[in-house]
Design a protein around this nucleic acid. Sequence first.
RNA 1: GGGGCGGUAGCUCAGCCGGUCAGAGCAUCGGACUCAUAAUCCGUGGGUCGUGGGUUCAAGUCCCACCCGCCCUACCA
Length: 471
Amino acid sequence: MYITTTIPYVNARPHLGFALEIVQGDVLARHHRHLGEAVRFQTGTDDNSLKNVLAAEAAGVPVRELVDRNAAAFEALRGPLDLSFDAFVRTSAHPGHRAGVERIWRAVGHDLYRRHYEGRYCVGCEQFYAEGPCPEGHEAPMQAVSEENWFFRLSRYQEPLLGLIRSGRLAIEPAARRNEVLAFVEAGLDDISISRSAARSRGWGIPVPGDPGQVVYVWWDALANYITALGDGDYERWWVREPRRIHLVGKGVIRFHAVYWPAMLLSAGLPLPSAIYVHDYLTAGGRKISKSSGTVVDPVALVDAYGVDAVRWWLLREVPRVGDADFTEERVVARADEDLANGIGNLVNRVVTMVHRFQDGRVTEAAGPVPDACERAPALVGDALAAFDFRRAAAAVWAIVEEANQYVEATRPWHQDPADRRESLATLVRACRVLAVQLEPFLPTAAARVAAAVSGERLPRPEPLFPRLRR
RNA sequence: GGGGCGGUAGCUCAGCCGGUCAGAGCAUCGGACUCAUAAUCCGUGGGUCGUGGGUUCAAGUCCCACCCGCCCUACCA
């Protein structure tokens, strides 16, 4: 399975919204590796946008410097968020990217033409708008643009796209997003400008092959990363032979991924992604996350404050598949205390403590069945993740904890005779081991701690696995 | 203007093709237990399922209109 996240602009440091996407990708990647499948999980940064140029100008630093610094901050999410991406692609630095963009440009040459264009461009969106203020609320004034650009005959691909999307060969999830894209395509597609003058780009970006006065439109450039970052051999492996090529994207960039990108690929005669999963946004305290309103949440600071387990768990356990989710630190803390400290941590702790108190740390193999949730979890998690429902998947893992605690209450090992107790504790230890396995894609380090706490014939001394964050 | 998605217990939400669907979790209250990070387990509370019509033997569950929120799209003025 080939999984990608979008590659964010690096005009600023990463915020929690991107953390959501990359953690979701990480869970998918870990889950499928767990199943023994070959996985490539790729992320990166969009270095070439005009937005980055303007941010650098505003900060009074060279573009290269600002881009390098912020891109490093994105790549550095790996540690704090426990990410397992296999490749990190920077569009201004990856050795194969520029050549790949040029190759694609030439491959779609039959669909390109030059045309004078006038429009109003929102740098915040990296997109043209008809009139009125930027619908996304970006404050930078619209740029009146009048220049000759390269255009792509998107209009040719209306019917092919409709066929692909309707047939499901290009899956778009959730269904509401698929319908949204269909409605957009059915309304008719205009050709799109895919270059800008080098002057307007301040010389930043990838020059149009054979036309150094023009720079490739940043979206065209950025989308290409999904295949340019694959070397020749990997391209074949991951974009041609691999049947599952999945893009994780936010709702704001759906059109680029579900319309422009597939059309590019069709024009170039290349395979399309197999699925696009569109997640919605996080809000912070009920407000849209934005720099201007001071609602930006730094995922690294959150991890510093509450730990990676609390942050990942909240993102996975509470963010719904459809619809925005509201972030507050209180919810992160409450969820962590409830599920991690009082739930998983306490369960493992009470089980291991009993094993030590009653059996000197020794545990045997369980003869009887484990709680149902242990048996059901793998299938439930698999089904939920196949539907990109991370919350439902996390709930299936959580059910193990719930049933194991119920098992403790039902058997009351401290009142059992030694033989029965040995069986009860063996069952509980086994349940904890299953829990550790199932938890791994979601909370890799926590899962390792759980596994270590219940491994071996003689268990280590119990230690709290999760700190209580409040109370 | 057109299209789409939501509006279900205090909060967050499940409820697919109509007939135990009026539910779960949290919070509240009560009880149990003592192995555990005062953790855990059990029970309880009752909300006209946005509003008004309609179809049906039967509607959160289908149809129509309207109100509210959000999204996509187009832009009349």
